[in-house]
Amino acid sequence: MSTPAQAWASRARPHEGRVAIVTGAAGGIGLEIALRLGRDGAALVVADADAARLETAAGALRDTGAEVRAMPGDLSLEDTATALAACALEAFGRIDILVNNAGGGVILPFLAHTPQTLKQTIDRNLWTTLWCCRAVIPPMKERGYGRIVNIGADSVRNGLWDHAAYNAAKGGVHGLTTGLAREFARDGITVNTVAPCAVNTPQLVDIAKQHPALVERFVSVIPMGRAGEMAEVASMVSYLAGTEASFVTGQVISANGGSTML
């Protein structure tokens, strides 16, 4: 029987021995998630379309003591997602956790969108998630274990201004979550989504400097009266990625300061 100290040490690094893929990890929420999973013991495979920023992020992750592989590329392409899964399997021999964070919408009034910005929004958010899930589920199923955590959006639920196209993409992610969760529930694979509201990313901070009224409008729907913090999102992701969340699947869990309830 383990001592209380040993039990606490185990809980302090709940992903020890696990391998996690984090997409969109060059900065912002994705990097914060990777840092959290690394501190919690996971070996990391990080991906992003921005190769230079990804290499900088990988260096920061290695500085914390995490074992890291980095693979740049456009994950809205099937071949890139397939190569990402292959990279993880070659480096570590397994894939335990996939965090589909890659995304980023073009936030505009619906009629201000162009065909290009609409396609970009769907590609970045929905196709990246679809292809990465498709790439990692077979090895997870073979091992009888897997945790998939998607990053969705609370705006899907509250109909936030200027988010219609973005919500179409993230709503697809929410729907994919429930479908995959049911299909693979008996294969030891859980699939959940964390849906943040406005979050204090470097991008939001920059927008607030240029367009403070716009950010205030988005924050106005949050009862707590503030944007979320990246660490608050990463904390929920880490929980859902762990063994303690083994009976949680098919859920869209909002980290949103109350901007939607139930």
Rank of each mutant, 00 (worst) to 15 (best):
N101L: 06
A227I: 00
A169Q: 11
H163W: 05
D79H: 09
G30N: 11
D40F: 09
Q120R: 15
N125P: 02
V237S: 08
A195T: 03
Q251N: 13
P212S: 10
G250D: 13
K209P: 02
N100W: 03
A51F: 12
A112D: 15
G27H: 08
T82D: 13
C133A: 06
A195W: 01
L214V: 10
V173K: 07
G228C: 04
V194P: 06
Q6S: 13
L54S: 05
G146P: 00
N200H: 10
G144A: 02
A85E: 12
G250E: 14
V194G: 09
L240W: 02
E32K: 12
S10T: 10
L77Q: 13
R18F: 00
G144C: 02
A165R: 03
S10I: 10
D96I: 01
V233G: 11
N256V: 05
S220L: 04
L160K: 07
I21S: 06
V237Q: 04
A51T: 10
Y239Q: 05
E229V: 07
P109L: 08
Q203A: 04
G28H: 08
Q210G: 09
V99P: 09
G228D: 01
F218H: 06
P138D: 02
A57Y: 02
T193H: 03
A165D: 04
A57T: 02
W161M: 12
L75R: 04
G171M: 07
Q6W: 07
T178I: 12
T64F: 11
D74I: 01
Q116S: 14
A9W: 12
A168E: 08
A102Y: 15
A181N: 10
V45R: 09
V194K: 11
G24K: 07
L118G: 01
N125Y: 11
D50E: 14
V45L: 12
R134F: 04
Q116T: 14
Q116P: 08
A198I: 07
A255I: 15
G65I: 05
T82Y: 11
I107A: 03
S2G: 00
P139I: 05
A34M: 08
A51P: 09
V199Q: 13
V252E: 11
D123P: 14
V106F: 04
T56Q: 09
G104A: 08
L204A: 03
G38I: 05
N192R: 12
A102T: 06
M1E: 04
I207N: 00
L54W: 00
S235A: 15
S235E: 15
L108I: 09
W161T: 03
D123Y: 08
I137Q: 00
R226G: 00
K170D: 01
V194H: 07
A255F: 07
F218K: 06
A198G: 13
K209F: 03
G103N: 11
E90Y: 08
L35I: 01
V19D: 00
L37Q: 03
D40C: 10
A169R: 13
I122A: 01
E16Y: 01
H163P: 01
V45G: 01
A70V: 05
G30V: 06
